[in-house]
Amino acid sequence: MRVYFRALSILIVLGSMLAACGAATPAAETKAATPLIISAIPDQDPEKLNRLYPQVAAYLSAELGIPVEYKPVTDYTAAVTAFKVGDLDLVWYGGLTGVQARLQVPGAQAIVQRDIDATFHSIFITNSASGIASIADLKGKTFTFGSETSTSGRLMPQYFLGQEGIQLSDFKGEAGFSGSHDKTIGLVESGTYDAGAVNEQVWKKTLADGKVDQSKVVAFYTTPAYYDYHWVLNPGAVDRYGADFTQKVQQAFFKLDPAKSADKEILDLFGATKFIATTNENYTQIETIGRAIGKITP
């Protein structure tokens, strides 16, 4: 028996060494090509994200003439952190995560957004059995946000709740964080929570697809407009591909044409008709609110 143990331990050591050598080589090769790495916050159905972003990567690669690679990220914070360490070049962020990411990387720029992002809203939904008809009725009820760093599912809803005189301590129990807009809708529909806040676009899409029982869930409040989702470009990419790279990327997005079927597919998956330019200054309101609520620290 002991012979086996000894053989086993030798094999373990040899095997790990071999594997380590094998693993090192392909990684070195990909670095030489330096593709543009794009990513996105995981704000909705990941299956949809996996259909959309490889298409975006292919489109950008053709337009910009450089290799473009999509790296999926499964956590909002991880998407910000990976941008900070320089592993992601161009990322589709929400309002708050975009500000968080830019504050971590001096020189990062908000460059493009959808037409709908300049006047975005959050929708408050409630289970029809809960008897909630206005924001004031939320006192003493259970309530869920989406992801912790979601702009439309947490930051702006929490801000507008405060504006209407509702604090988080007014809810029954602790405010929940469902993790995604789809989940929020599901939990309110089931009655796990009396009410919740969701992204306007996701809500409309869910209604249009008939994926929700409207006798059980109703919308009762729409927030004022704010700036939301946008693409943020890492200055590291500008260093690599030249000073006019920002404009090139912007142009590539502006050129998406709903008349072309391939382009239309991308636009549809984004839920947009066209992309427009944006700047860092558009997000000062988000930054102020983020600081007030404690989601942005110095």
């Binding site: 053989a7 086993l8 094999l11 095997g15 790990s16 594997a19 380590a20 990684a27």
Partner: peptide, 15 residues
């Protein structure tokens, strides 16, 4: 076990 270990390291392909 002896086969699993090298396979796992190859499959993960960590840098």
């Amino acid at each position: 076990v002896a086969g699993l270990i090298p396979w796992a390291f190859w499959y993960i392909d960590a840098d």
